[in-house]
Design a protein around this nucleic acid. Structure first.
Lengths: 345, 345
DNA sequence: GTTAGCACTCCATATTAAAGAGTGCTAACA
DNA sequence: TGTTAGCACTCTTTAATATGGAGTGCTAAC
């Protein structure tokens, strides 16, 4: 059977109405709400067809129809209105101080949650390869030295090290020289034993300090503390009756406390291909590949700070979420972000 | 009327039973569960007295009694068993790397939540006055210099500054000298205009760089990003029927997304007096002074990293929380923490 | 002072009834 | 051949109505 123009129109009405009300949609409602001028009986025939084709189902006999995942998919792929939502005052709301990307992302999460009424998550930018750009140790008092490591992505790591020996000015200069000449430009795979032995040899009796510094360098390069996730509006799950009673929702809420889990979701979602559309993707029900989200939909987008540095934004709501609004809000937001990041960093 | 020995015993049974079951407690239950060997009729008389005295109430005629806040207060103040709970394997669980207090606190929050089944929050340590201990600027490439500020609490702040002029090695040494000699040991109130002018004068034509650095210093000293709050187990609220349905619970869950709010709660709770008992305090219902918590109780404790550096731990649950377990768990935890922090930092 | 006994209250639960929404099918109509 | 009115049927939702049980307060007797 084929999807006639009329069937599409009916299906669209069913979806739209259901998105709004969350109640099964009956034939009479459609008969009244469309300009097709058909009786409910005719609509019933068409609905019967649509059910057979897998686009709608009845929760029980004598109930209206609700859209299936297949219908949502069709809706998202072809029926979305392309209306642009003005992200009003976003720029003013986002008080963005250069370098304070953390704060900006946090605000974005909050903004999206309060604008869409769905749970929102934003992952911080991930840097691909990390290399040492610059290392410096400095004595701060008798027993402590400050180690600063600047990575090639301009991320700075530092830690205060306790040392037993007295480190004088001359030695500091020498150690700094050794560290920088040997390590600059290397990533963690390139720091092999040979290089490490080389450094220690040069350091002579001060190998102990070098050891401590090298451990820090190793941590700085491998550490996954880039894993910054900002969430907002988790309690929105409770607003939707079809979710709030389920045990899965508690699990979802729990997940929002565990950034690692959320990161997995975002990572599992589509690859960033840096396309012009900001790679906005919609995952409906099981398409999310997360079991606890089988009654939810997730919309993700990828933002790009600059070449090679991407992060993700995700919005999770019930399957009957307002895709239209979510997608277009994200679209507008991404445009704004492009603008913000354009002359940054 | 006075609280006879017998009344106390009955009240205690009511409270204990109610803590367990969450259901109103009837006279027959008490008659059976105590070793008083009294008939339910006698118990009823006593309960009638207890009700008059304000320790218990009936949700409705023909229901058992439930404890009032006054009863809980009495229970917490005088009836708690002093059994020590062994915080098993805590030390192994807490993989504590020196300097990584953040990670430790996060683990503590998680540990408490999973052990008590209540929502848990931990605030990071607050430092009283912050002074500059050490400042250093270093060029990292042609257009960027790295500014590192070490505060007297050994917190390190850094930021990369973009500069227009070329900064050569000799200038760096000079600027560092100027900054350190002038600013070290000062807190934000002591950095007055006179001092700032003095610095700029010395810096001569490089006042612009100094300006940028000074702004960072100001931020570092005043910034409130000490406000680190770690939470866990927020969804536990949903486990308790007497809470889960209320709209206040949604508000509570929301609050757990807003670290600022939680911080206020913790701050509003008792003053840290550094007493030996770790200042463990129990707030019942309205004693929390937070309206959304009027059906909850909160137990707080103060941990001390070292003199003058305190943080707080809070556990929120229903009024019928297992005070016994919570308090003793906290007590054990605090002892462990003392041990961990003893030779740290 | 304690207790058995009893009438009474109120909640929780199950049962039943009624109303409403929606469908599918048939037969008639244009 | 597509459309529609009509009707019987199903299933849910809601309300109304019993019924049982838990618990109390009171009284009178021990």
């Amino acid at each position: 059977m084929e999807l006639s123009e009329r069937k599409i129109k009916i299906l669209q009405t069913i979806i739209r109405t259901y998105l709004e009300t969350g109640e099964p949609v009956g034939s009479r409602t459609i008969s009244k709400d469309t300009d097709l001028n058909l009786s409910s009986a005719t609509i019933r025939n068409e609905m019967s067809d649509l059910e057979e084709m897998g686009y709608i189902i009845q929760p029980h006999t004598s109930a209206g129809r609700i859209p299936t995942d297949k219908a949502y998919r069709l809706y998202v792929d072809t029926m979305l209105d392309d209306k642009k939502i003005e992200v009003q005052n976003l720029k003013e709301e986002l008080e963005h101080k250069a370098g304070k990307i953390d704060a900006l992302l946090k605000q974005i999460a909050r903004f999206l949650a309060s604008n869409t009424n769905y749970a929102t998550m934003v992952s911080g930018p991930r840097y691909k390869s990390k290399k040492v750009k610059f290392i410096q140790i400095t004595p701060v008092d008798e027993s402590n030295i400050l180690t600063v490591i600047v990575l090639d992505n301009n991320v700075v790591k530092n830690q205060i090290l306790r040392v037993d020996e007295v480190i004088d000015q001359e030695l500091v200069v020498r150690l700094n020289f050794i560290l920088n000449t040997t390590l600059n430009g290397l990533d963690v795979t390139e720091m092999n034993l040979a290089i490490i032995r080389n450094i220690k040899e040069q350091a002579g009796s001060h190998a102990k300090v070098i050891d401590a510094v090298l451990e820090l360098v190793g941590n700085a390069l491998t550490e996954d503390d880039d894993l910054k996730i900002y969430t907002s509006g988790a309690t929105n799950f409770l607003k939707y009756p079809e979710l709030s009673s389920k045990s899965e929702t508690t699990e979802l809420l729990n997940a929002f406390e565990e950034k690692r889990i959320i990161n997995n979701w975002l990572e599992a979602a589509g690859q960033s291909n840096g396309s012009e559309t900001h790679d906005i993707q919609v995952y409906i029900g099981n398409e999310t590949n997360v079991d606890t989200m089988k009654d939810c939909s997730m919309v993700t987008a990828t933002y790009k700070i600059h070449e090679g540095v991407y992060g993700k934004i995700g919005i999770i709501g019930p399957k009957r979420m307002d895709y239209d609004k979510v997608v277009s809000t994200l679209q507008s937001l991404m445009t704004e972000l492009d603008d913000i990041f354009k002359d940054d960093i």
